[in-house]
Amino acid sequence: MSRIAETMNALKQKRTKALVPFLTAGDPDLATTEALIHVLVESGADIIELGIPFSDPMADGPTIQLASERALAAGTTLKGVLELVARVRRRTNVPIVLMGYYNPVLCYGTTAFAADAAAAGVDGVLLVDLPPEEAQELQPHLRRNGLDLITLLAPTTPPERMRALAGAAEGYLYYVSMTGVTGSQQVNPAAIADAVRDIQAHCQVPVAVGFGITTPVDAKAVAGFADAVVVGSALVNIIAAAGRSPELLNEVRAFMTALSEGVRTAE
């Protein structure tokens, strides 16, 4: 069983939900990202979504655009991100999903990427600009190496497409809580609960909800119906504000602990 499935099954038995923080690898540098991942795991992260920085992050709002710029300015490459995962993997079993855009993966080479990512200890891959219909040059290589290709669903996904994608989903399904880019507005949990339950009825894998979840209150509300709660821009904002200051790890720990408390106490 994959690390993602193991983690989600264990949480299900404890009747609790997953907290999934997102951060951009290499923001402000890879050594800091490494330290941050361990802090995230210690303070309640169940799965880590690690952003591969890209020059043209079309699906991201200003917060993650700037994080990408800082990471690229620090010289971050996909190869460097995979080496980071390999270092992190020596100390933790937390599932790690690489999230980003297709071009760096295509440029790395789809065969080599799948093999190297699996060897480094990556568990899943989420590429926002690679629609399922175009995934055939990557997906077989990921499958052969035991990696999940995570699929996105949006509020505008038509029902028949939702059912088809939900039925074929691997790892978990990522439901985008709103029409928009990352970090743009606040989630409205009541407005999406029915849509998430509908997706859950059509798929075998957990449903994660992301976009617009910034506070422990949001996290608790969304964890009331979703199987996993993704928090990205709010965390990246803390990393941006603290930079390399010694307070960074403590601030992230405090924020994550509060989010985790919210998720664990969801009803």
């Binding site: 043209d56 190869k79 071009n103 760096p104 993966v105 295509l106 790395y108």
Partner: peptide, 20 residues
Amino acid sequence: SVGVLHGNKTYLLQDGDGQI
């Protein structure tokens, strides 16, 4: 060289890491 940007696969100006 060949890459993917803005939803199409085509020739792009990119560096060795696939950054545009």
